[in-house]
């Protein structure tokens, strides 16, 4: 279950560090450098119950990924509160912590433990994960020999088998071939039905319509619209182009 209440996230505006030369030239200005903040999220609130999937749509830079990072806990909100119950499994980017020189199997183990499994649990699950990925033939080869689609399958397989209580997904189903895509969205739907709370960020409107039962539309860090996938997506599309 996820409850987010009025969350704000501010980032200090990062410019290129003023070097030593600028320091000498602009001596006085260097110190009272106006510290401005970039506001990535301005008071966003929502709730996702068990068995629900919330879609998040919006243009690039609207704050979607920041929102996911906050839910995951790798970032702290500047204001507001977030409550997430259940084991959080992120699918933020393909295979965080994957190393090209390790084999598929070694990467699965590493990634599985990073996602909160113990080594023993992971070894027990290993066959199921490899099965799901359909990469049994390649599993003992180094990851650098994999295609990007294969990497993604590996990452997805380990994440979906990590007993998630909360799934945070950032644009992942877009990759992979048609058959795997179909399989993974089917498994995802089953997981959601079984009681996982999911937040799904995507630019693929079709997938959002397929999987999500509610959608929020972020614009400049604020919720512009919220509700039924079909109507929100229609409004969203009509304002683009």
């Amino acid at each position: 279950m996820i409850v987010a209440e009025n969350i704000w996230k501010l980032f200090p505006v990062q410019r290129d560090r003023l070097g030593f030369k600028e320091f000498l030239v602009n001596f006085p200005r260097y110190f009272n450098g106006n510290k401005r903040n970039f506001v990535a999220l301005k008071g966003v609130s929502f709730e996702v119950k068990k068995g629900q999937c919330l879609g998040v749509i919006g243009r690039n830079g609207a704050g979607k990924s920041t929102l996911l990072s906050l839910l995951l806990g790798v970032m702290q909100p500047s204001r507001g509160s977030i409550e997430v119950r259940g084991r959080k499994v992120p699918l933020l980017a393909l295979g965080a912590g994957f190393h090209p020189d390790l084999t598929g199997r070694e990467n699965l183990l590493m990634n599985g433990i990073l996602l909160g499994n113990t080594e023993k649990e992971m070894l027990e699950k290993m066959d199921a994960v490899i099965d799901f990925s359909e990469l049994a033939d390649f599993i003992d080869r180094p990851l650098r020999t994999y295609s990007s689609g294969m990497c993604m399958r590996l990452a997805f397989s380990v994440a979906i088998n990590a007993n998630p209580g909360v799934l945070l997904i950032d644009e992942i189903l877009g990759v992979g071939d048609a058959s795997f895509r179909k399989k993974s969205s089917g498994t995802l739907r089953k997981l959601i039905k079984a009681g996982v709370a999911t937040v799904y960020v995507s630019h693929s409107m079709q997938t959002v319509k397929d999987i999500c039962d509610r959608v929020i539309w972020l614009e400049h860090g604020e919720i512009r619209a919220e509700g039924e996938p079909n109507s929100v997506i229609e409004d969203y599309i009509s304002t683009q182009c």
Partner: peptide, 9 residues
């Protein structure tokens, strides 16, 4: 960075 930004550990 990629690890720190994507996984809590």
């Amino acid at each position: 960075v990629s690890l720190i930004r994507k996984v809590i550990f």
